[in-house]
Nucleic acid binder design. Structure first.
Lengths: 177, 177
DNA sequence: TATTGTTATACTCTATAACTATA
DNA sequence: TATAGTTATAGAGTATAACAATA
């Protein structure tokens, strides 16, 4: 760690929000976001909300939300998992997962079964209806994703994953849902 | 803690969640996320939550949340703005902005002033305390950002903004907060 | 003692309808 | 009529504390 860290091609992050706005861009009609537009967290949030909104509208007819899709996917790929394990994997508190599983079970998509090994735990799995629904959901999800790939171009799209995973990992990464 | 960083090479979007898992990666201990790890929305959400969590913990001592920081920043850079304009800019419903401004005003950070031009509207601005606090917040925000820059490298970092903005723009982009 | 699932609770964020006072 | 701010309300999402059954 020497001073070379400061000498980057990209200019160091501004110390405050005082980057001067060019005189030819009046704030009367267009709003100045100051440093927000140069913060990866802000841009990340805008992008994430936009993607989730599109996701949500595509899943709306099937009455499935993104969180439910992630739960169903993990159960589909890991049948027999306990609620605590699923909660940990998706970064959901087990206490909050209860009602979510309740809803999916009431709709006949998920099954809670007793296990012989640990009689406290529930082994979760998809019902036939659940598996059928997942086929539709995965198809919708892939269509949605394909639209992003086509918009960004395959290379730019593929290049997003590594840095985003690195950002998620460098912080706590206690949440994956 | 978890297996979030399983480095998959990104490949064309699968039609469903049925990409077979290699036989050498048992699901007993590590959880299979299926298509989730290859969905930009999922990775985006994980990254965004991680960044906000770090943000939140840095701002915690000053009792400021990310949404409050974005509101304060916009007011700081655009003094005199109405609540409706701020709400639109940040993608917050004006009805939900009321309580947020109430809290900031009660803490003496923001001022609501009557305007002669339109007696229905409030012109918002920061108080002296508000401006003082913002200096600290911008410094914290810049430190947080610098950590990400150093972790990713300046080029990778800089390359994130364009595709993320494009993703935000290609969908509705009704939310910018 | 520790853990699994659970209830109860609370706070934030988000969303809609309806009101008031202005325009 | 329409708009700015507001109130009331309701639904998700997320957080902690505490409990019964089981390990």
């Amino acid at each position: 760690m020497d001073s070379s860290l400061r000498a980057r091609t990209t200019k160091p992050v501004g110390r405050d929000g005082a980057e001067p706005r060019p005189a030819d861009s009046p704030a009367k009609t267009s709003i100045d976001f100051g440093p927000l537009d140069q913060r990866v967290g802000y841009v990340l949030r805008r992008a994430q909300l936009a993607v989730f909104q599109d996701f949500f509208s595509r899943f709306e007819a099937l009455d499935i939300r993104p969180a439910q899709y992630s739960i169903l996917t993990v159960i589909e790929r890991n049948a027999g998992l306990s609620q605590t394990r699923i909660a940990d994997a998706l970064g959901i508190k087990k206490t909050n997962l209860v009602a979510m599983i309740d809803a999916l079970e009431a709709r006949g998509l998920v099954r809670r079964e007793a296990t012989a090994r640990d009689r406290r735990a529930h082994a979760l799995s998809l019902t036939a209806d659940g598996r059928l629904l997942m086929r539709k959901l995965h198809r919708i999800s892939a269509d949605h994703e394909q639209r992003i790939v086509e918009r960004l171009g395959a290379d730019v799209y593929a290049g997003l994953f590594a840095p985003l995973r690195e950002i998620a990992a460098m912080m706590g990464d206690r949440d994956e849902g």
